[in-house]
Computed example of a mutant assay.
Amino acid sequence: MPASASRIGFITQAVRNATAGPDGTVIAKYGDQARDTEEPLECFFDNVEDAEAVAAERLALLSPDRRRFVTEISGTGTGESLDFNMTAPTARIIDSEKSADLPAIVVELGIDYETDRSVLTTWG
């Protein structure tokens, strides 16, 4: 990459700020647990737009309510068939008692061969 005047100016800046928010739902949900310092987080991006995109993605992850579900499934076939090689498996959680009908990611898998069951922990 040629060293243009704008590129030299960008590189020689000590700090570049990228922010997302504030979001009232995140503030209400996490309150004092939120990071309350003005110190920048060190990260390595080629441009501010990339850093702002990541900050917006992080805010989007924090905004909705998330819940954890542990589901026991009869048989080991379900657990054995999940493929974690390319992507994390997802599931749709439907639970009328907990008012849940939502997509979730499988974050933990247990297979119990003695009781012939799969145990999926999902987050969504």
Rank of each mutant, 00 (worst) to 15 (best):
R67V: 01
L82C: 00
L59G: 05
T78S: 10
T90W: 01
R58P: 04
T90M: 07
V70P: 00
V70L: 10
T78R: 03
P89V: 13
P89L: 13
R58F: 14
E72A: 09
G79H: 05
L82G: 01
A56E: 07
L82V: 02
A56H: 03
I73D: 03
L62V: 13
L62A: 15
N85M: 06
R66T: 09
L62T: 08
R68P: 02
L59V: 10
T87F: 10
S81K: 15
A55G: 04
D83A: 15
L59K: 15
A91V: 03
E57F: 12
I73A: 12
A56Q: 08
D65H: 14
T71K: 07
D83K: 15
R68A: 11
L59F: 08
L82R: 01
E80I: 00
S63A: 09
L61Q: 05
L82I: 04
A56W: 00
F69G: 02
T90D: 02
A91P: 01
T78D: 08
E57D: 13
S63L: 07
R67M: 01
G77R: 14
D65K: 15
L59Q: 14
A55V: 05
E80H: 10
S74Y: 02
F69M: 06
A55D: 04
R68M: 13
A55I: 04
P89H: 07
M86V: 14
L61P: 01
A56C: 11
R68F: 12
F69E: 04
A60K: 14
E80W: 09
F84S: 01
L59N: 12
A91C: 03
E57G: 11
T76L: 10
S74P: 06
R68K: 12
T90R: 03
T71W: 09
E80N: 11
L59W: 02
T90A: 00
A88P: 00
R68I: 08
V70R: 11
T90C: 08
T78H: 13
A56I: 09
R67H: 06
T87I: 09
L82T: 01
A55H: 09
R67P: 00
R68D: 15
G75K: 06
S63T: 10
S63P: 00
T87L: 03
M86Q: 15
T87K: 04
T71R: 06
L82F: 04
F69H: 01
A55E: 04
L61H: 03
T76Y: 14
R66G: 11
S81C: 14
L59R: 14
T87E: 06
P64E: 04
L61E: 08
R68Y: 14
D65F: 12
N85F: 04
A60V: 10
L59S: 07
